[in-house]
Design a protein around this nucleic acid. Structure first.
Length: 439
RNA sequence: CGGAGUGUGGCUCAGUCUGGUAGAGCACCGCGUUCGGGACGCGGGGGUCGCAGGUUCGAAUCCUGCCACUCCGACCA
């Protein structure tokens, strides 16, 4: 992409409403525009990041055997009356009436709808297990939206729903999602730690929140720091095999958010050397809830014994739009964002320091073509802005590499290659620079 | 939902107390000088001062009502 043809409205000054780094930087880097409290337009740069995050989530869900579909944003109130949640949900639910006076709502989640879909088609244990997911916009009319996309009212979420004949099957499905989440967040360059979460009325131990560590996180977390060294399951992990050793490994060491923190247990289980207090952001949650919805909504399946029973369900959420903010919270410095490679909107920024200079233009064109062919998605700054402004913009939008090409260097046959994450700069030939980036 | 604030050009803000017919910096347009870490000069465009009433000869400024947004707390992916 050539910057001269792109739409990247960067801000020199920080809009006064933005308090935390991710919100500030998303506005300044031209990723986001607020349209109403907690409602945002995703500008081109932000949209690219959102799509990258979404795609990683999708790939890991598919790998774990989940099946994608797409449910609507609007739902009938009657569906929610079946589960009893229409009245329970309160003002956070955005209620809408259509021209026929039918009561609708903008979905805050989809348990009811997926249960309705499932019960319409699936009646036999032979069709189990199933795991269906979608990535769709949700709306929760928060009393107090804040922190940009970290707590918006409209948000993009991946939610998966598992269906099993019995609790043992449900636990297997839960474990699959647990492992998929470990991989998903690690691929985005995040350290996400599963922590025991409150399970509500169902009880049991089958709910975990995945917490990304970031200095500006919303809640305090306490954990055994050895959890940071645990291995992430590889791409070849066998989701049909026994996943319990992995789950055990990741759930044995103490890790809890302040809500469920047990100071006495923490101090008895974790040696002083290994104690770590940090702050974190919840980016995902896995939850097994059995027949909470299938029972009132009569989503029954017939078992091998010929007996009908409510299907056993779990749900698994990932805050896709929130992750964009969480990643920035975890990855930024005073100059701007520092994107992990996997979610960077562009792989490399090529800075043309003297557009119009034939030699510089030619070198930039070559770099652009080579890097494009290598799948590095370069962003070429071919604008007339002054060098200082170009450097500041590149640091702000945080692309992993900056390839700086100007007449002064070219005279000596060299360009400058800067690594955004470390600030390290190298002076080398254009070919060597391209090899370094593409390799 | 309690408490506290703020709405003035695209952004950051001054002007409001003490009413007199709208400003600065940045951004934008033109010309020129510049050009390797957010340059400078000259000229220029752009604002129903959140909305609606009211007081007044006159309202960004005073009064009333409404709306939007932000912050602290409670609540939540």
């Amino acid at each position: 992409m050539r910057l001269s043809r792109y739409f990247l409205p960067v801000l020199k000054q920080t809009p006064s409403e933005a308090q935390i780094p991710s919100h500030r930087l998303m506005l300044r880097a031209g990723m986001l525009r607020q349209e109403a409290a907690g409602i945002y337009a995703w500008l081109p740069l932000g949209h690219r990041v959102l799509k990258k995050i979404e795609q990683i989530v999708r790939e890991e869900m598919d790998r774990a055997g989940a099946i994608e579909l797409l449910m609507p944003t609007l739902q009938l109130a009657d569906l929610w009356r079946e589960s009893g949640r229409y009245d329970d949900y309160g003002k956070e639910m955005l209620r809408i009436t259509d021209r026929h006076e039918r009561e609708l709502l903008f979905g805050p989640t989809n348990e009811e709808m997926i249960t309705e879909i499932f019960r319409a088609y699936v009646h036999s244990y032979k069709d189990l297990p199933k795991n269906l997911y979608h990535i769709q916009w949700k709306f929760r009319d928060e009393q107090r939206p804040r922190f940009g996309v970290m707590r918006g009212r409209e948000f993009l979420m991946k939610d998966a729903y598992s269906f099993d004949l019995d609790e043992a099957g449900g636990r297997r499905s839960y474990n699959q999602m647990f492992v998929a989440y470990l991989r998903t967040f690690a691929r985005m360059g995040l350290t996400a730690i599963p922590m025991k979460a409150e399970t509500g009325p169902i009880g049991g131990d089958l709910s975990h929140e995945f917490i990304v560590l970031a200095e500006t996180g919303e809640s305090a977390v306490f954990c055994d720091k050895r959890v940071l060294d645990l291995p992430i399951p590889g791409a070849g992990v066998d989701y049909d095999g026994d996943l319990t050793p992995i789950i055990k490994q990741w759930t044995t060491l103490y890790a809890a958010t302040e809500d469920v923190h047990d100071a006495a247990r923490y101090e008895s289980e974790v040696s002083e050397d290994n104690r770590m207090t940090a702050r974190g952001i919840e980016v995902g949650q896995v939850f097994f809830f059995g027949d909470k919805y299938s029972k009132p909504m009569k989503a029954n399946v017939t078992g091998p014994d010929g007996v009908d029973r409510p299907v056993q369900m779990g749900s698994y959420g990932v805050g896709v739009s929130r992750l964009a903010g969480a990643i920035i919270e975890a990855c930024h410095d005073d100059d701007g964002i520092i994107w992990p490679e996997a979610v960077a909107p562009f792989g490399v920024g090529i800075v043309n320091l003297r557009p119009g200079d034939a030699e510089v233009d030619a070198a930039c064109a070559k770099a652009y073509d080579v890097l494009t062919a290598a799948g590095k998605e370069p962003l070429l700054d071919d604008t007339d802005e002054r060098p200082g402004g170009k450097f500041a913009t590149m640091d702000l939008i945080g692309l992993p590499w900056q390839l700086i090409i100007g007449p002064r260097g070219l005279k000596d046959g060299v360009v400058e290659l800067k690594r955004r994450a470390t600030g390290e700069r190298r002076t080398l030939s254009l070919d060597d620079a391209l090899t370094t980036i593409a390799g």
